[in-house]
Amino acid sequence: MMAPSPSILPLELRDVSFEAGGKRLVKDFSCTFAGGKRSIVLGPNGAGKSLLLRLCHGLIRPSAGEVIWHGAGGGIDPASRQAMVFQRPVMLRRSVAANVDYALSLRGLDRSRRTALVDEALARAGLSRLAASPARVLSVGEQQKLALARVWALKPEVLFLDEPTASLDPSATHGVEEIIAAIHAAGTRIIMTTHDLGQARRLADEVLFLHRGRLLERATAEAFFAQPKNDLAQAFIRGELLWWRRGRDNLAARPGAPSEEGDPPCTVH
């Protein structure tokens, strides 16, 4: 429910680190997300993209540093103003409509108001005709659309999406991207990870490039795809990062930090 009350944004991560099993997986992460845009988080596997989203969304707590919703306070619970869509959506063993209804009931809406919101969300995601079907028998693409309808019904101010199309075919991907664009157009801040550079080009207003738990570059989509400043990011969008893996992450520790010129790519042993 996007109440007219003040925004919970901006979201600030201040020196956030996350450790698991003695390894620092997110390192000294600092950045601020203001309203409006669609931010796409890019980076190779293990860069910490999902962890970053989970830290922002509050599913995991930082080992050090702070996640601050500057607009929250005064009785506003930031958790109630945000939502997340996962790579593989978890559907409850009940009907399509009941899945959306359950999410709304968790936000404390009474039954009379929920029915209309459920119908509306399903209609916008193009799932109305499946409303009574059991959610678990839908195709993966339809399930992901349902996941989007479910969060859309909540009208969150910020929506996190963790590789929402990673297991979808091109046509389902297209459908999901349309819904994401529509959710954004309706006023929701989008923060999303993806492996799909084409998708990033289509959806991003700005790009955050992560590598081995560090934020190496943050730029507008236009600037980033024209020519990333960071050499690892350059390699990444050329699809050559694999060749750069060894011995490099300590050279470009900070966003925008200059990398050593003329360093030859490491070869794979």
Binding site: V90, L92, R93
Partner: peptide, 22 residues
């Protein structure tokens, strides 16, 4: 279910019956 349920705002207590049902 944990991530999904927590994300929707259901901690263990509220998720209990939904989990039994599922």
């Amino acid at each position: 279910y944990e991530d999904q349920m927590r994300s929707l705002g259901a901690g263990p207590a509220r998720a209990l019956t939904a989990l039994l049902w599922d």
